[in-house]
Nucleic acid binder design. Structure first.
Lengths: 170, 170
DNA sequence: ATCGAATATTTCGTAATCGAAGTTCGACTT
DNA sequence: AAGTCGAACTTCGATTACGAAATATTCGAT
């Protein structure tokens, strides 16, 4: 059934790049950026489906991942809002819900009582770990056509880009 | 002022990968996936700021880009909803607004009257083109540390990934 | 030819998000 | 030591998004 697809993904991608170039973009730029977004769009679709099994939205996942990545360090609601690309007022409600489920806990910062410190509970860690292991399946599938060397090279190039990100809007 | 950053972006990225690996992910996978999302997250932040100048939300941009990429072919609201990763009912309202602004136009499909065909207006094309040219600035900046050969290689590797995307959930 | 299932879109009620104003606290100035 | 400014979080009103039901049309089967 999949054989009746009219255009391959590569052809589709090439046509998309042409559209952006015709509209005034540079080819060497659009080829990369368009490809990156094609990958994340597909991944996002899988994430929503997989996270639904764990009763987890993308927004809640973002909170879980941000806290896990912070390790022992607690984060404030504002920091979480920044990391999740969301308004602080939205984070309030999101944390209310997650605290109600027992995934995170809030406690006042004794050194500065305008702040609130958020941390993962045991259940929060467990859910994070479960989501990572489940996600790794499709992520691994996504890269299945890449050799170890190619994965390494892809990571290296992306890390060059990452290294320069913070200096751009400064 | 930027010099007082405690950790470099690479160190941050490496720590993030370690977190995912500790939670049960494969290193060669997480290194790539985490990097891809680090890039898109930063790009998304810039897009919202830049699109605000054009009075354009990310959702509206998605519609514009989908229609532009389709070229002469008209798309239905359902197709646009799929391409935008959004519910069909949300697309209805979004198209209402955009049609009101004169960016898109709806007309009934004569061959199947349950369908509606959406296409870009002249103004819609102009706005798409303006957004592409404006976005290209920061996108180009994002890749500024990559040589032409490296951009080519990065695009090539990503295109390998894209080529395999459609066959995974099948 | 007609009835039933499937598809496409919209409407409606509920939930999530945003931006702005409100509140509380800390820091700096005088 | 009082007052002002700024920072952090929450509350509130309005916009946006979602899921389910409703509507309309096409397709297939008897």
């Amino acid at each position: 059934m999949a054989a009746k697809r009219r255009r391959t993904a590569q052809q589709e991608h090439a046509a998309d790049v042409s559209t952006y170039v015709a509209a005034g973009g540079e080819e060497s730029v659009q080829r990369v950026i368009t490809a990156v977004y094609a990958v994340t769009k597909k991944l996002d679709q899988w994430y929503v489906r997989q996270f639904a099994d764990l009763d987890l939205t993308q927004g809640e996942w973002s909170v879980l991942a941000s806290l896990a990545r912070a390790g022992d360090t607690c984060l404030t609601p504002s920091q979480l809002a920044d990391l999740s690309n969301v308004a602080p007022s939205s984070m309030t409600h999101r944390l209310d819900k997650m605290a109600g489920r027992g995934l995170v806990q809030r406690r006042p910062d004794e050194s500065n009582r305008t702040r609130t410190l958020v941390s993962l509970t045991k259940d929060g860690w467990a859910l994070f770990s479960a989501a990572v292991r489940e996600s790794n399946v499709v992520e691994s599938d996504t890269l299945r056509d890449l050799s170890d060397d190619e994965r390494h090279e892809l990571a290296r190039l992306l890390e060059i880009v990452i290294a320069g990100l913070d200096d751009i809007d400064a």
